[in-house]
Write a protein that binds this DNA or RNA. Structure first.
Lengths: 341, 341
DNA sequence: TTGTATGCGTTATCAA
DNA sequence: TTGATAACGCATACAA
């Protein structure tokens, strides 16, 4: 199958390739230097042949692919499709396309994405990265790829990278405050993997919040999960079975909603009443959290907005000529109190 | 920022570009026609420069992008992330990358994807398409793009396109049978948009199944939804409020789980007991369906497997030299009976 | 207002 | 075992 090129169009219209190129790339811009008559003729030829510009050739020539990569850890977590939507919509407006890299929580896969991004000559990257090292990110930056981070991973290490953040600290503190006000004194935490930035960060903030409200940190009340639903049942069991009555938690804060939902399911199937016997809260406010019974108390992160802001910022950098300023945008969180606490 | 090219590597290693190309593309294959010594030298130069092959140039030259497009209607429906995972995993194994086109249920967007796919010179496409016309698909096929359909959209119209299907007919019939056996006689249907293939198809099968079990089709018991959760509450209200007692449905079959979940939520908030007063069932078996109370009876579609099969078939076509045979793969469904019926 | 010519970074054909 | 060289399809500086 041979698809028409500019040359075919040029021949058919009786003009040169350059003229065709000019006409096609002239989005009613200023330098209208083509006679109306040839323009008509060329456009007729384009239509007749069904000519479609070859973006590959265009990219090679322009040294720009109009491709933006988005790195995420787990597309099956309902948090991320919303983030993708936001990024997508922003990218659409500027004729950029999103290339989604889903690592499925695998550090190795995430690592290999760097090479792939480099080879594809992607113009920019949005990183919601859990395992990339400073060197990994440096490789991208050094290659002239525009990078925007999601979360708070990067900028500490001397990387000149803009970041979209949400104020986890006050969000989690507000959550703990809410629990304390409900009378809870023994609050357990089901953490995310501590070798991931959000896992570690949420855990640390949890500890700080405890002490802020005069509560003792008890290592027995902390379990490490995976940010996914699997395996939560065992953690919950050890939390409620392995402890004496007076040490058992009256509330559980899970580091994300997927784990919180599974916590509620586990407790319920063990015969516990949520929230009467044990309260549960999460983090993210993914849609299913509002669907379950009892509906989950959680922190709203607005992934759509995060994705949109990240992509907007990235494109702004990409489209402006000056060296891009490092910027730090904060997306507000929201405490969402429902029935599980 | 200037990134190293083959020429840089060649200079550094003191060989020609062609040699570098040979060495890089020689994945320990048969024709090892390079002396071990130059190979070492070249590979050292590659490592030292951090050379990454430019896939854009490669694509232009090879007339192959190693890109596969995946068209889906709504990435925020948890069904699709699983499908993406399946396709992704299959594509990964053959060094192909997935380009996700999410139409957000917009016919216009879906339509515009065809041009984008054509321009990007994507090698193959997986279509879970709701609104593409036969001509749209023909444009892809005519351009030499390999196409695999998901669902049963295409092959009727004389298009030579392989399709992955799930046997909706027997699945829905089994679902209705289950309801009938539970004693239900007035079964309502919340359909998907009837201008979409799955919306129309599920509706038709629903009607056939009714008559198969000797039940009268009642237009008052059919409402048209959108495959999303929004707006379902109104439909449910009109189903339970606008009908006399002896015409009110005792069961509702929603055309997908997202609508079924919202149906349960609406009924519950209206004070109805599910399933005791009204039973509800859905279609898809997305993960949240198991989380809600009562857990949803539904039909398991195995999106992961569908995505994987589709991508595998597509890649098989892409990688084989012969003209590809039209094939039709059926992915088994599963009736999942839970608490909502 | 239009055409000519060059190069973007590869791969592949053909010689050497 | 290696090197020259010609495409691939396009955009753009410059000439006409």
């Amino acid at each position: 199958v041979k698809r028409p090129t500019q040359l075919d169009v040029a021949k058919k219209a009786g003009v040169s390739r350059a003229t065709v190129s000019l006409i096609i790339n002239d989005q009613e811009s200023s330098n209208v230097r083509i006679s109306e008559e040839t323009r008509q003729r060329v456009q007729a030829a384009v239509a007749e042949l069904g000519y479609q510009p070859n973006l590959i050739a265009q990219s090679l020539r322009r040294q720009r692919t109009n491709l933006v990569a988005l790195l995420i850890p787990d597309i099956t977590n309902p948090y991320y499709p919303l983030l993708i939507r936001g990024a997508q919509n922003a990218a659409d407006q500027h004729d950029y396309q999103l290339l989604i890299y889903d690592s499925d929580d695998s550090p190795a896969r995430e690592h290999s994405f760097v090479d792939s991004i480099l080879r594809r000559r992607v113009d920019g990257v949005i990183l919601q990265s859990f395992h990339l090292s400073v060197e990994d990110v440096s490789r991208l930056v050094d290659a002239g790829i525009e990078v925007v981070g999601l979360g708070r991973i990067l900028h500490e290490a001397g990387l000149e990278v803009s970041v979209i953040t949400s104020d986890h600290s006050s969000a989690i503190t507000a959550l703990i405050k809410h629990l304390v006000e409900k009378g809870h004194r023994r609050i357990a935490h089901i953490a995310g993997p501590l070798d991931t930035p959000p896992g570690l960060e949420r855990m640390q903030i949890f500890r700080e919040a405890l002490s802020q409200y005069g509560l003792q940190y008890d290592p027995n009340l902390v379990k490490i999960g995976t940010f996914r639903g699997e395996g939560i049942a065992e953690l919950v069991k050890s939390l409620v079975f392995d402890l004496p009555d007076d040490a058992r938690p009256t509330a559980i804060f899970a580091a994300n909603d997927l784990m919180a939902i599974e916590t509620i399911r586990s407790l319920t199937s063990l015969g516990y009443q949520v929230p009467d016997e044990i309260a549960v809260c999460g983090f993210d406010d993914i849609p299913p959290s509002a669907w379950i019974t009892p509906a989950l108390t959680t922190v709203g992160q607005n992934p759509y907005e995060q994705g949109k802001q990240a992509a907007s910022l990235l494109l702004q950098h990409l489209l402006s000529d000056e060296k891009s300023q490092v910027e730090n945008i904060n997306v507000p969180y929201q405490l969402v109190v429902r029935d599980s606490t």
